[in-house]
Design a protein around this nucleic acid. Structure first.
Lengths: 151, 151
DNA sequence: CCCTAATGAGTTGCGCACGACTTAATCGAG
DNA sequence: CTCGATTAAGTCGTGCGCAACTCATTAGGG
């Protein structure tokens, strides 16, 4: 166990013992691993997540996108504008409810799906987990998220 | 390979199946849980991590801080300036090597340690994991970080 | 019908996070 | 010793991520 200069450490407050830091470091490390792959597609990591949702379900409101990704409109609105500027999505007010904005894939956005197919495979490969470890990790992370979100 | 809207997805590229998203969501959820606690201390989450390192080992270079936290000097330099402006640390050039800057705690920075003692306990409590689950999660996250970083 | 509350999207301000770059100091081969 | 390469810290530009707020639209009680 590492110690403060001179005095013994008390055991609480050690960076390397904290799950929170392991989580923070792992998340950034994985995102960094995505970067070169996503650069080829002209996407950032959050933009890629938005595209994943749209490839699953085209024409979705900003609100529902926020629910899926747990992101605020203040994060999504500028991001979606950048995707629109890049020609991947269109934004149009809904006739039924003028408050709502539907996000739809353009042709370019839809066709990007094939080029992106290899990304999750490459990342899964880089993570190098067995399927049991992968399942365990997902389960634990979802448990943490659920506990920390409401509790 | 691509599908029309409405059809079932093929299993690759499903947001909810991806470990990377679970990681990203969990990391943000945990940080959000920290926020009200750290607000009372006048710290952000990355600032809190820097303070954790300093409480373990006072007088550390920006370089070594970056190695510990896996952060670039371009992230740390402005962050450390804000901590200095807040009166928690001092920055002084090292005599032995004028390129290097030593970060030292002020009195206020050192005494913040006691007030911060309850933070890891509160977070650990909120995560609600058994000690076995906690250990398993840390192990898996470190494995992912290690594999993804070099590989 | 009216008027207030709510809802959805967007704006602003601030603090990361990182790539690309700059500057200054040190190192090290010849 | 000299001078080109390396190293440490910092700056700049871009894109999140979120709190606090605004604005427009819709819902709903009286």
């Amino acid at each position: 166990m590492s110690q403060a200069a001179g005095e013994p450490s008390e055991g609480w407050q050690l960076l390397d013992d904290q799950l929170c830091f392991a989580l923070y470091a792992a998340s950034r490390a994985v995102t960094a691993r995505y970067r070169p792959l996503l650069d080829e597609l002209g996407l950032t990591y959050p933009q890629y997540l938005v595209m994943l949702v749209l490839w699953e379900q085209d024409s979705i409101s900003v609100r529902d996108l926020g629910t899926s990704l747990q992101l605020e409109s203040s994060t999504l609105s500028p991001l979606l504008k950048r995707l629109e500027a890049g020609g991947l999505v269109r934004r149009e007010r809904r006739a039924e409810d003028e408050r709502s904005v539907a996000i739809r894939l353009t042709e370019a956005g839809a066709s990007l799906r094939e080029r992106a197919a290899r990304v999750p495979l490459a990342i899964g490969d880089a993570m190098g987990l067995t399927s049991e470890q992968d399942a365990m990790a997902k389960q634990l992370l979802r448990l943490i998220t659920a506990n920390v979100t409401n509790g």
